[in-house]
């Protein structure tokens, strides 16, 4: 591969890792409730904005990050407790509209609590690019990739080994059966929103040094994260990573070799084609319809 194409790949991995991290949050909530959480991008924004403003006010970076992640987690729990949880018996589409309302509310609050400007956060290990075979990549991108992989490993452990994780997994397969064996699905819902919000905030903190953050930066990230989660197979954690990286690489390679103006169009067309061949996403479950 030439240095040029390696650079396209490096750029694609940077973007893809970001999408993957956002996509993971979608899959967690989907598993627990069957809902697409349109406020997932706002969790990312809250993480980034809180960390950026706390750091700017003089707080040490690790403390600011911890507070930001904690704050987002609380927001996630509140969303589950006071809104989604109350309408649990409603249609999935109704629940989705609730998350759309939540995303507006959170964006609206963010613009009042903070402001409408773009904020930056320092990188964890400097701006000096790392060189690999003639291509360059920012150290922060490597952080994003590494954390994404670590998060997937931790999620696998959580859902495979812990009691709460297994309960959440059981709920995702069959809610009624889970309730029958004594699983409190309200706790599962709370846990999934809390976990997804924490994950989203971690994503926000990690990507703010690359893409910056503003009160409305969650919208596009949410859209791309949703696309990545679907492409990989909704509900599958490895699928979220594969979907994110695939989408990022598609955009980057399309911009590099075909047309930067139509790179998103190309990415979406390829995605539609993939879905038509694999209607459950790349790593999605192959289930047959039941009556």
């Amino acid at each position: 591969m030439s240095a040029e194409s390696l650079q396209f790949v490096a750029g694609g991995l940077t973007t893809g890792a970001i999408y993957a991290l956002v996509a993971l949050g979608f899959s967690i909530i989907f598993n627990a409730s069957g809902v697409i959480n349109f406020a997932q991008g706002e969790f990312v924004m809250i993480g980034g904005m809180s960390a950026a403003t706390l750091f700017a006010s003089g707080m040490a970076l690790p403390v600011a990050i911890a507070c930001a992640v904690g704050a987002a987690g609380i927001v996630g729990l509140m969303l589950a407790k006071f809104a989604v949880g109350r309408a649990r018996r409603a249609d999935v589409v109704t629940l989705i509209i609730i998350t759309i309302g939540a995303s507006m509310l959170l964006r609206g609050l963010a613009q009042i609590v903070w402001d409408k400007r773009i904020h930056a956060l320092p990188s964890l290990s400097g701006h000096r690019p790392v060189e690999l075979f003639g291509a360059t990549i920012l150290p922060q991108s490597l952080w994003v990739l590494a954390v994404t992989i670590a998060v997937v490993a931790m999620l696998s452990w959580f859902f495979g080994q812990t009691r709460l994780g297994k309960a959440m997994l059981a709920t995702s397969y069959n809610r009624l059966a889970a309730e029958l064996v004594g699983i409190d699905v309200r706790i599962v819902l709370l846990a999934s929103f809390g976990l997804a919000a924490v994950l989203g905030a971690i994503a926000g903190v990690l990507i703010a040094p690359i893409t910056f953050v503003s009160y409305d930066s969650g919208v596009m990230l949410g859209l791309k994260g949703f696309a990545a989660a679907i492409l990989g197979g909704l509900g599958s954690f490895p699928g979220a990573v594969v979907g994110g990286l695939t989408l990022g690489l598609l955009e980057s390679l399309a911009a590099g070799y075909l047309s930067s103006a139509y790179k998103d169009v190309i990415a979406f067309v390829v995605m539609l084609a993939v879905l038509l061949v694999m209607p459950g996403g790349i790593l999605g479950a192959r289930t047959s319809a039941r009556v």
Partner: peptide, 22 residues
Amino acid sequence: KEYELAVFGALLMATMVFLPRG
């Protein structure tokens, strides 16, 4: 004014929570 978006979002949520069928 600047509270518009937040209030709109909150109204939307409240409607769907209390009138889940629309």
